[in-house]
């Protein structure tokens, strides 16, 4: 993707669109966004792969 296409894409999909957020981690961030009327889905996250970071990393690379 060349620079102009990429910046157009970021402009179209991020800067010129009201943020719609998937929140993973601190729930307070999701609550504050929700209170501002921002669309947010809070993920009830727990450490994947049985809490093994190396395995979680590998699984993310494999698309799991």
């Amino acid at each position: 993707m060349d620079g102009s296409t990429m910046s157009d894409d970021i402009g179209k999909t991020l800067l010129n669109t009201p943020p719609k957020v998937v929140n993973l981690g601190l729930e307070s961030f999701a609550l504050e966004l929700s209170q501002q009327g921002v669309a947010v889905v809070h993920v009830d996250w727990t450490p994947p792969a049985g809490g093994d970071p190396a395995l979680a990393d590998l699984l993310s690379k494999l698309g799991a």
């Binding site: 450490p47 979680a56 699984l59």
Partner: peptide, 22 residues
């Protein structure tokens, strides 16, 4: 649930953050 979402805000422990970002 929300297919038109455009941004992930990630604040999970650092050990797992890169995997979630990917």
């Amino acid at each position: 649930q929300a297919p038109d979402s455009n941004l992930a805000l990630i604040s999970v422990p650092g050990d797992f953050a890169a995997a979630e970002a990917r």
